[in-house]
């Protein structure tokens, strides 16, 4: 179900920063790939949105258990999770 090839790591992070900023959270000024997503407002409700947005955008499937509180606390970590599951798909 790959929507398009996964972009290069730096571009993927940049795209995810934009996705979070424009479609998920009201991010504080200066929000970047290493900013804490929970401090930017990520909660259990927005995590559901995030999963769906990421899966639709990148055609990856994040299996149950793929996400932990600590492995999606920044965009950089989230990009690593996405790359890991895109590679194994």
């Amino acid at each position: 179900m790959a929507a398009r090839p996964l972009p290069a790591p730096a571009l993927l992070e940049a795209e995810l920063v934009v996705l979070v900023r424009e479609r998920l959270l009201e991010t504080p000024p200066g929000f970047h790939a290493e900013s804490n997503l929970y401090l930017a407002g990520l909660d259990s409700m927005s995590i559901m949105q995030l999963i769906i947005l990421v899966e639709e955008e990148y055609g990856v499937s994040l299996p149950d258990g793929a996400l932990t509180k600590d492995n999606i606390s920044t965009v950089r970590q989230l990009a690593q999770v996405i790359r890991a599951h895109a590679a194994s798909a």
């Binding site: 409700m45 995590i47 559901m48 949105q49 769906i52 994040l62 149950d64 258990g65 996400l67 932990t68």
Partner: peptide, 29 residues
């Protein structure tokens, strides 16, 4: 925290599969 994160994934999955209406994405426990 861990259970709630798993629950968020389960609910997202159920909405994608049509097992729950999209409105369930507004749920917060």
């Amino acid at each position: 925290d861990t259970a709630r994160l798993q629950l968020a994934q389960l609910l997202a999955r159920a909405v994608q599969a049509g097992a729950l209406p999209a409105d369930a994405l507004g749920a917060h426990l």
